[in-house]
């Protein structure tokens, strides 16, 4: 028997609510008209940036539950993750919800990971309402992975801007909304890149691997989708992915794009684009969901990538492993 990577959801789990919250800089970006909430201040009224990130997740979870016309007591399971050590933002946010909780770490691919796991559990009839959520914050990520904010240094052109934002969605057995029809769980791929400022190059091979597996397992081609979107490969990473796919004989056309690359306007000097869990999570739960509901898109392949990096391993000279999970989201019938 062949190894299973792709699963199909015959019972059609529905995304009945989705919510996105972003920081002030993100609120001026290309998706500004789609977000549910734009923070005026990226401390969000809290003392530290870590607390702000936790509050963002809570805000996004409650927002998604309300948009699904549910109460917090209706939720059975919370699936969440973020970038900080021991995924504190998610776990600490989960204290305030009286439901089962699974903490996930897929770096920036967490949104797809949580939807894939959540859809599997809902599809199997095991849970009724599952909330998937993730967040990232520029200032907490900088402080953990790079340098203090006030240090006067220059960012290399390949570096990306960690998006301050959180996204959540509610998966249910039935209801109105876009449907998760299949998912491809990715493998950890490492092609020997150790430049911590070049995440696009780290993750592009993982995206290629998952994409090839997905097209093979589902017997589809890029033309079958209205939109194929990667998470935060950025400008450089998505160009690399297009090259890698071309080497494999698959041409990615105009329906391919990358959330990180689209996120900021040219004037916002985000270098290679946006990144972080919040990058693709906020785009999915605002722009993409809206377009699916409007009927602009019928079938979307959402495949965020993650660089499973730790500063300790990077300082010890280890190369950085990447991962990519894919979920297919289709427009539900009216």
């Amino acid at each position: 028997m062949a190894k299973i990577q792709t699963v199909k959801f015959k019972n059609r789990p529905v995304i009945i609510g989705s919510y996105s919250i972003v920081g002030p800089k993100e609120g001026q970006g290309n998706f500004k008209n789609y977000f549910d909430y734009i923070m005026q201040d990226d401390r969000f009224g809290e003392k530290t940036y870590e607390q702000a990130e936790k509050k963002m997740i809570q805000h996004a979870i409650i927002g998604a539950i309300e948009k699904a016309h549910l109460k917090t007591s209706d939720v059975d399971l919370l699936l969440a993750g973020d970038l900080l050590n021991q995924i504190i933002s998610s776990s600490y946010a989960a204290r305030d919800f009286s439901c089962a909780y699974l903490g996930l770490f897929g770096a920036c691919s967490t949104m797809a990971e949580s939807i894939a796991v959540g859809a599997s559990l809902v599809n199997g009839g095991l849970f009724n309402n599952v909330v998937c959520s993730t967040a990232s914050h520029f200032s907490t990520a900088e402080r953990q992975f790079r340098f203090p904010l006030e240090l006067g240094n220059q960012r290399p052109p390949t570096s990306q801007w960690t998006v301050t934002g959180a996204g959540s969605c509610v998966l249910a057995q039935s209801g109105k909304g876009p449907i998760v029809t299949s998912a491809t769980f990715g493998k950890v791929i490492d092609w020997g890149i150790n430049d911590v400022n070049d995440m696009g190059a780290v993750m592009a091979p993982a995206a290629m691997d998952t994409m090839l597996t997905h097209f093979r397992d589902t017997k589809t081609t890029p033309d079958d989708y209205d939109l194929i979107v990667t998470g935060d490969l950025g400008k450089l990473g998505s160009e690399i992915l297009i090259d890698l796919m071309e080497d494999q004989g698959i041409k990615l056309g105009l329906n391919y794009n990358d959330c990180g690359q689209m996120y900021f306007t040219r004037e916002q000097s985000a270098l290679s684009g946006g990144s972080g869990c919040g990058c693709c999570a906020t785009v999915l739960n605002s722009f993409i969901m809206k377009k699916l509901q409007d009927g602009k898109y019928k079938k979307v392949l959402f495949m965020p990538t993650g660089a499973l990096m730790s500063t300790t391993a990077a300082q010890q000279g280890e190369t950085i492993p990447g991962i990519c999970h894919a979920v297919v989201i289709e427009r539900g019938e009216e």
């Binding site: 402080r143 340098f147 203090p148 904010l149 006030e150 240090l151 006067g152 240094n153 220059q154």
Partner: peptide, 29 residues
């Protein structure tokens, strides 16, 4: 200082002021 450093690069790192910046910035962070 970080705004100066953004375009000055080595110009604001190499002087003794850059040393001071590198001590103060983690302190407040």
């Amino acid at each position: 200082y970080d705004k100066i450093g953004k375009f000055a690069g080595g110009g604001s790192i190499v002087p003794i002021t850059g040393f001071s910046n590198s001590i103060t910035s983690p302190a407040l962070e």
